[in-house]
Design a protein around this nucleic acid. Structure first.
Lengths: 214, 214
DNA sequence: TCTTTAAAATACCGATCGGTATCCAAAGTT
DNA sequence: AACTTTGGATACCGATCGGTATTTTAAAGA
């Protein structure tokens, strides 16, 4: 094992704390996971924790950012795919992978829920979630255009539903049955099945009056 | 104000504690809401709390039961409706109403999440959720039959998706935009749009291999 | 090699938690 | 009216929480 510089060592500690926090929050919830527990599971003391993060909320927010930015990157990578068939296949693969680690989806649910409770968390959350939603809307719009299909509902609603299923199935899944990925795949299929070709020039009829906001 | 018997007084205290707990858990989460806080907001002391519930977990479980049994009753009431149009209208009305009180949906999400953390909670949860899921599957099957439509996917998956959207949208909703009821309405519409009449005798093609377990 | 500096460990703080023991006042009983 | 029962209030417990102050240790700079 090579000797590490101070910078490297610090970065490694930070990352281990983040990974440990993700596990702890998923397991016990934000309130249930203690700073002591997070630090110890990472192999450090509480002193190390507070040397790297100013507060418990801060590490939670850092986790939130890590996750949301990762999702945005994944969407962009998919969209950059020139071949549409490969893109759809990649999308399905992503859905399937998203339930592989229940820790991750459980953490996602915990983050969403907690962001509604603390105003300081909510501020950071809204900024990131807004970016992710926008990215997702752009993605879905592009996919429909590529497939030559007309969305069967406002794209923002479709995007919101994907997000809802992702979060909702993560917590409701009975120990692996009906993982979120499966349900998202099913919804994707249903959306496509409910779509008509763009060439079909019938009137565009939304199932509901379009949403007020966004 | 009439003098209350001991029984009446006790029942009233219990109900007030339950209502207060629902608000507190929705607001602060299971871990974040304290027994003191619950009791005080109901206008009682901690002693009153422990006189009516053996533990914090117990009141949470009682809340869970109250909610699930209420949903089962609502489903049965809808299914008893002889006129199918009225039934569908009632279903839509129910979806719309379910987002009226964010406290309720937030509590639902908290319950789902917490039931996965404590084994003792999970036991009670699984029993109730199993009953609700079964009821929902029966309901959806009956509705499709009444409408003369063939479900576009396994009914158990459709049921799971409704539950997921309900829970997921509750926590993701940005202060009221895209309430869960709206998204459930949209999914309902999409499911119907993706269905074919029973008379159509084409092959039944599920979008996915049917789920292994329930 | 000696000094400086900062990452991480240890020790500690007041506050608050879920839960228990005890007490009191009002309802039920005779 | 006297006595019993019990729902709810008060007081208290050890444990644990998030956070801070201080000390140790090892890398960086001379």
């Amino acid at each position: 094992m090579a000797r590490l510089t101070r910078e490297e060592s610090r970065a490694r500690t930070r990352e281990r704390l983040l990974a440990s926090a993700a596990r702890a929050f998923a397991r016990a919830g934000y309130g249930g996971a203690s700073v002591d527990e997070i630090a110890e599971e990472a192999g450090f003391s509480k002193g190390a924790f507070y040397s790297n993060f100013p507060s418990k909320e801060a590490i939670f927010l850092a986790l939130l950012e890590q996750k949301k930015l990762g999702e945005i990157a994944a969407i962009r990578a998919l969209l950059a795919e020139p071949d549409t068939d490969t893109l759809m296949q990649g999308l399905r693969a992503w859905f399937n992978a998203s339930h592989g680690d229940p820790t991750l989806s459980l953490l996602a649910a915990e983050i969403e829920l907690q962001a509604r409770r603390s105003e300081s968390l909510a501020v950071g959350y809204r900024a990131l979630q807004g970016r992710l939603s926008g990215e997702l809307v752009g993605f879905i719009t592009a996919v429909f255009a590529r497939l030559g299909l007309r969305p069967p509902a406002p794209v923002s609603d479709i995007a919101a539903t994907f997000i809802a299923i992702s979060n909702g199935a993560a917590m409701a899944s009975d120990a692996g049955a009906n993982p979120s990925g499966r349900l998202m795949l099913l919804f994707l299929d249903m959306v496509l099945k409910a779509s008509r070709p763009i060439a079909d020039l019938g009137p565009t009829v939304w199932p509901l009056t379009p949403a007020g906001g966004r």
